[in-house]
Structures are given as C-alpha cells and as structure tokens.
C-alpha cells in the first residue's frame, strides 16, 4: 500500500466566478514510504496548492487523497490535527513563524502540541536549530533575523519532531547556494534515516537531490521520472 495516493485531484479557486482558477486539474500519483520526491514546475503551476492538500492543510475540490490507506476527507478536525502533529513536518514557502515567539520557542511549538516536557523539548529544539546552523540565534525574534535565518528556523521547526513525512515548499528559496546545499544534504540524511520527503523547488539542480522528480504545468503532471542526476550521485 502506498503511503500517499492521490487520484484525479482538482483544486478550483473561486469556482463559477470571473477569476476562477484551476490550480490543480486532475492530478494522480503515488508516493511510497522512504521516497525522496521533488516537485518541479514554474511559478503558478500548482505546486504549493498540491503540497497544502498533501499536508492535510487544505481540501481538494474534487478527487481522493489516501494517506496510509485512509481517505483524508473522512477525517475529523481533531484527527487531521493529530496527523499534522505526529505524521507530517511542513516547511512553508513563506516560513510562517510566530512573530511574538523566539526562534527557540517557535521550534518548540510542535513539541508543545505533542505534550512533550519542557526540558526535553528545549533540548530537542536547540539541537534542531544547531543542525541548521542557528545555534547562536536561539533567543532571537523572527523580526530580528534575516530571511534566510527565518527560513532555517522554519526548517528546524519541521525536523524537530522527526516526522515520518517531511514536506518542504521551496525550503531554500532565500538561501545562498552553499547554505542551500547544506540544507539539501540535511534532507538527504533524513531521507536515508527513513523519512519520506517531498520537496518543492523550481531549481532543477536542487531537484537532483531527490530520487524522483514530478513536473507540474498548469495544474497537471507533465512528467514523473527518476532523477538522472541523483542516479549518477552528482553535486
């Protein structure tokens, strides 16, 4: 049984109105446990829209999504929260940090919702921030950090819970090429430890870290194949 299975997924914004947008127009695919998949596509091709649905943050207008065999549309609000808390780590394109909380507190938050004790979650959150190179920025507010640093806090928050599935929407969009490669190595290491990773990027080179690349255009999959670069072990 595939971990993720979507069938004929549609997402229509503002249906029936003048500004109707078909962000997804019949997407079907399957992702197995332990895969590292890149989703490639031009801006506006529907990548984030698909990711939000896969991350149980949004619901499709049409079509089915099975996560671990369970149809997601049948789950209650609380069950969805539980999935987001225990199964999925989400790195947002726009970071989505809470502005009144320090880097450390932001990274601790998913652990708070897992009812983890204070000392333990402090330790884990600190480790996660150190892994993304922010060991010296624990007490900074998002407004006191650069875009790239905020992005790395968002990454630390997603990996702190060691989720079985990690979804990353342009996780290196604001980083220089060296930092980007470091983050990619981090994702690859997590994948080797068994984490299923879905990575959104518009950068073909970065997509090379994944074993498989799905390409979207105008809300449809136009190609889905093993990554050539990855096979050759390039970069």
């Amino acid at each position: 049984m595939p971990l993720i299975e979507i069938h004929n997924l549609y997402k229509v914004y503002n249906p029936g109105e003048e500004n109707e947008v078909r962000a997804l127009a019949g997407v079907s695919t399957q992702i197995e446990r332990g895969e590292f998949v890149a989703v490639l596509g031009t801006s506006g091709s529907g990548k984030s829209t698909m990711m939000n649905i896969l991350g149980c943050l949004d619901t499709p207008s049409h079509g089915t999504y099975r996560l671990g065999g369970t149809p997601v549309e049948q789950l209650s609000d609380n069950q969805l929260s539980k999935i987001r808390s225990l199964a999925i780590g989400f790195i947002f394109q726009g970071y989505n940090l809470i502005k009144d909380l320090t880097a450390l507190e932001n990274v601790e938050l998913p652990l708070v919702y897992r009812n983890m004790g204070r000392a333990k979650r402090r330790r884990i959150a600190t480790e996660a921030l150190q892994r993304v190179g922010l060991g010296d920025r624990l007490q900074h507010l998002p407004s006191e950090m650069s875009g790239g640093q905020q992005q790395r806090v968002a990454i630390a928050r997603a990996i702190s819970t060691a989720p079985p599935i990690l979804m990353a929407d342009e996780p290196t969009g604001n980083l220089d090429s060296r930092s980007s490669r470091e983050i990619m190595e981090l994702l690859r290491a997590l994948n080797r430890q068994g984490t299923t990773i879905i990575l959104i990027t518009h950068d073909r080179e970065l997509a090379g870290y994944a074993a498989r690349t799905i390409e979207l255009r105008d809300g449809r999959i136009i190609s889905d194949q093993p990554t050539v670069l990855a096979k050759e072990g390039a970069v």
């Binding site: 991350g55 943050l57 609000d77 609380n78 929260s81 539980k82 987001r84 808390s85 225990l86 989400f90 947002f92 989505n96 940090l97 809470i98 502005k99 009144d100 938050l109 998913p110 919702y113 897992r114 928050r157 819970t161």
Partner: peptide, 16 residues
C-alpha cells in the same frame, strides 16, 4: 488569524 493558522498547521487541536 495567521498565528492560529500556523499553530493548527503544526499540530494544534481545536482544544489547544
């Protein structure tokens, strides 16, 4: 609202 969205997306339940 945005903060609430963030909290829910990283696992907060309604009760939280």
């Amino acid at each position: 609202t945005r903060e609430i969205g963030i909290r829910k997306s990283i696992g907060a339940r309604r009760f939280d």
